[in-house]
Write a protein that binds this DNA or RNA. Structure first.
Length: 791
DNA sequence: AGCCCTCGAGTTCT
DNA sequence: CTCGAGGGCT
């Protein structure tokens, strides 16, 4: 046996590489790891570099891309690349109207002409990419072109060579001497995202969407650029055929193409009649968001060529095929104006008011613009034409501005300097993204939101007090603080309704309707009454303190157990609660420092709000509760944990510390710098008072906080559980409460700290993430079984 | 100082 | 659901 010649080796390498490509891109069953592929490719590359005469045009090394071409040559398609007629689904069908009429018409026309009992269609997803034509002579790829106007396209052979899913040489046998294959070059979504993520990191150019990514990549003048773009390809038709035969149906041609080495979509099917088409349409539509590529519809083609020939063409579109489009997920519309909204915390949020468009099957007129930074990034202006998207996430967003359509004379948008509702100044904290109205509760918008929040389901849960009534109650002055809700009577409500009707010009209620109004008022008063019985965590959440959401409210309730304690707490002590830091503690302190807020709490209690679950502080509060931690929590300059410990040892009682001169701090062991800083800090009367009060409260807390014993550990103690998807037997909230009762911590998002994910019906990204991280996953049945066992 | 994890807040339409 | 930012750990 002699050693293989370089020529033999080159052939062997090419075969291996081609085979690996085929398995990876066509069969979707990679047979060698990427690294091995790269090694083989490098070996071949080196071999060819040493023996240039061994280089062949179909060699895998030639995919990498040669020197840039000045411009693309024109290619005349031997057989024109057709465009398809479109069928749209009627989005708001009138009663009795068939939303699929256009598809039915298409099928009916064929049925009338062909007069067959059954019509079989080859169906496939319509990829959102770029149509191309590939020419093979004697089984070797010789030329590739874009669709262009259908008759003439551009020669992008060099760029197409870089796409590994396109075979350079046909496999198997039986191919015609000349074969033109048509298909779609596209960018898989995962590749698109990965590409953009990297581009963002490296400061490169971000692709607008996968379609633009594919189209832009193919038209790169330098194939080496194309080679870096992650493109893929699916074949869906055949053009010119010479010196060979094709099967008699489209579906069998596709199977043949696959044998010859072309990727063909795994979603292709053959279906019977119009119902078959529509089933397919609905099936793909339902799975649209989970497909690994973007599609804008499905394509129906009469499967047999005989029938196709008989149907023929109208102008340039075949009468035997049609594209059935999905409702667009992106639409162009005109932004009429940028408005702002004022939220509960005063956040001034800009949003776009647009001319109504159908996006993803619903009419969209408004979309959030998040904040001023986002507007600056997009550079959206009044009157701009914009692209609106409503992707899997339902909530519409402005994707970008169509600059070519910008009317003359527009100016960049800027945040109003004053609140549109109350006229207070709009301010922004250093380094923050959000501008806020400084009016606080003098601002009607903030008051309204505060009342709405107070009444909301997760807060005081006043059923029937929705946005509408909050608006009127607030506007007409019946309710200026949340405590006013508990002074309302049925008479007030009826009077309010009468005035509201007058104001809005609504026809006054008839006597009969008056009865209905009474009923409504009775119900609302009863709901308000019911809400008087509440829990500490709901109450704290309802107050709407900045940075205090449900979770923080719950923690406060658990750790301190008593409203009276909390409302008088010196703010640094809030930091004793896990997950509460300086920012949140200060916010709590700020809230309770305001006499107006204390008054509201007094009023609520005086008007019958009862908080049911007062209990002593959580035993763990004792841990590290003392003078030292108080000093640390006060954030005194130069007073670190070490210094605080020294001080605590020297001054077991805070009173003595408050009045002590600086030299006593030095005697306690502090360096003079720290001692002086502390003395200077204490000069400020508010500081001294805060420290003194802090000392008292620490002593009080220590006196009422029980020792150890945190109760029996539940079976889920220390576990973090995430609930996702819909449950049949109970709501997610109920399930969460039950899990918490067993000791679990219920979190909202999946991370590597998550111990367990309960996935209900139609679970989405959280389930995917759990699988990715290898976290234990239960279905509802497992959850119910577990709960039953441990109830 | 930087990273990871959570929480809070705001949001659209039927 | 997504973004921004607070909290805590390394």
């Amino acid at each position: 046996m002699t050693a293989p010649t370089p020529a033999d080796r080159a052939i062997a390498l090419r075969r291996q590489l081609d085979d690996a490509n085929y398995r990876y891109h066509v069969l979707d069953e990679p047979n060698i790891p990427d690294a091995e592929y790269d090694r083989l490719l490098r070996e071949l590359d080196e071999l060819e570099a040493a023996n240039p005469d061994l280089i062949t045009p179909d060699s895998p090394t030639q995919r990498v891309g040669n020197a840039p071409s000045a411009r693309f040559a024109e290619v005349r398609h031997a057989i024109p690349m057709l465009s398809l007629g479109n069928a749209f689904t009627q989005e708001d069908p009138a009663p009795g109207e068939d939303p699929y009429q256009e598809v039915r018409d298409f099928v009916r026309r064929i049925a009338e002409k062909l007069k067959r009992p059954h019509l079989f269609f080859s169906v496939e997803p319509k990829l959102d990419g770029l149509a191309i034509s590939l020419r093979y002579e004697d089984g070797v790829f010789v030329q590739g072109a874009t669709r262009g106007d259908g008759a003439t396209g551009e020669d992008v052979t060099a760029n197409l060579r870089t796409i590994k899913a396109i075979p350079m040489r046909l496999r198997g046998k039986g191919w015609p001497r000349v074969l033109e294959v048509r298909g779609e070059v596209y960018m898989p979504l995962a590749a698109f995202r990965a590409y953009n993520e990297r581009a963002l990191k490296d400061g490169g150019k971000v692709l607008a969407n996968p379609r633009n990514g594919a189209a832009g990549s193919l038209r790169q003048l330098d194939p080496r650029m194309t080679a870096q773009r992650p493109l893929a390809f699916y074949a869906y038709a055949v053009g010119l055929v010479e010196g060979g035969e094709l099967p008699e149906t489209h579906s069998r041609t596709l199977a043949r193409l696959r044998d010859w080495g072309f990727p063909v979509s795994a979603e292709n099917r053959v279906v019977d009649g119009v119902e078959g088409l529509l089933d397919y349409y609905r099936d793909i539509g339902a799975r649209r968001d989970t497909l690994p590529f973007d599609i804008d519809g499905v394509v129906y083609k009469l499967d047999d060529y005989e029938g196709q020939r008989e149907m023929g063409f109208v102008s340039r579109a075949p009468r035997w095929a049609i594209a059935h489009k999905f409702p667009a997920q992106e639409q162009m519309t005109v932004l009429e104006s940028i408005e702002v909204n004022v939220g509960r915390t005063g956040a001034v949020t800009p949003w776009a008011l647009m001319q109504p468009v159908q996006v993803g099957g619903v009419t969209v007129t408004r979309a959030t613009l998040h904040n001023a930074d986002q507007i600056a990034r997009l550079d959206v202006r009044n009157g701009d034409t914009v692209i609106v998207r409503r992707a899997g996430d339902v909530i519409p967003e402005v994707v970008r501005v169509v600059l070519e359509r910008r009317p003359p004379g527009t100016r960049p948008w800027s945040m109003p300097t004053h609140c549109p509702v109350c006229g207070s100044e709009v301010v922004r904290e250093e380094g923050e993204a959000i501008w806020r109205c400084s009016g606080e509760l003098t601002c009607a918008a903030q008051r309204k939101e505060a009342i709405g929040h107070f009444a909301s389901r997760r807060a005081m849960d006043i059923e029937g007090l929705g946005e509408r009534y909050v608006e009127v109650l607030s506007d007409l002055g019946y309710v200026t603080s949340v405590a006013d809700l508990y002074r309302l009577s049925v008479e007030h409500l009826l009077e309010m309704k009468r005035r509201a009707d007058e104001r809005d010009g609504t026809t006054p209620e008839t006597v009969k309707a008056g009865k209905v109004a009474t009923k409504w008022a009775d119900n609302l008063i009863e709901a308000i009454d019911r809400s008087r019985n509440t829990t500490l965590e709901r109450f704290l959440f309802a107050l709407g303190i900045q940075h205090v959401g449900e979770s923080t409210a719950k923690a406060l309730a658990l750790w301190f157990g008593d409203l009276e304690l909390i409302r008088r707490m010196p703010w640094p002590l809030f930091k004793r609660v896990p997950d509460i830091g300086g920012e949140v503690a200060r916010s709590l302190g700020h809230f309770f420092d305001q006499p107006g807020n204390q008054q509201v709490i007094d009023d609520l209690l005086a008007r019958g709000v009862t908080i049911g679950d007062a209990h002593p502080p959580h035993p763990k509060l004792r841990e590290d509760l003392g003078v030292a931690s108080l000093l640390v929590d006060l954030e005194i300059p130069k007073v670190t944990r070490v210094r605080a410990d020294q001080l605590a040892a020297a001054f077991p009682r805070v009173d003595a510390l408050v009045d002590a001169p600086a030299h006593q701090f030095i005697s306690a062991g502090l360096p003079s710098e720290s001692a002086n800083a502390l003395a200077a800090w204490l000069e400020v009367p508010e500081h001294a008072a805060l420290l003194a009060r802090g000392g008292q409260v620490v002593e009080h807390l220590l006196s009422i906080t029980p020792e150890g014993d945190t109760g029996p550990a539940g079976p889920l103690e220390g576990k973090t559980v995430v609930l996702t998807g819909g449950l049949a037997a109970m709501s997610r909230d109920e399930a969460g409460a039950k899990l918490e009762a067993l000791g679990a911590k219920v979190a909202g998002s999946v991370s590597k700290k998550t111990s367990l994910v309960v996935a209900g019906e139609a679970a989405g990204s959280k389930l995917a993430k759990a699988q990715e991280l290898g976290i234990e996953i239960w279905d509802e049945a497992q959850l119910l079984a577990f709960l039953a066992k441990h109830a």
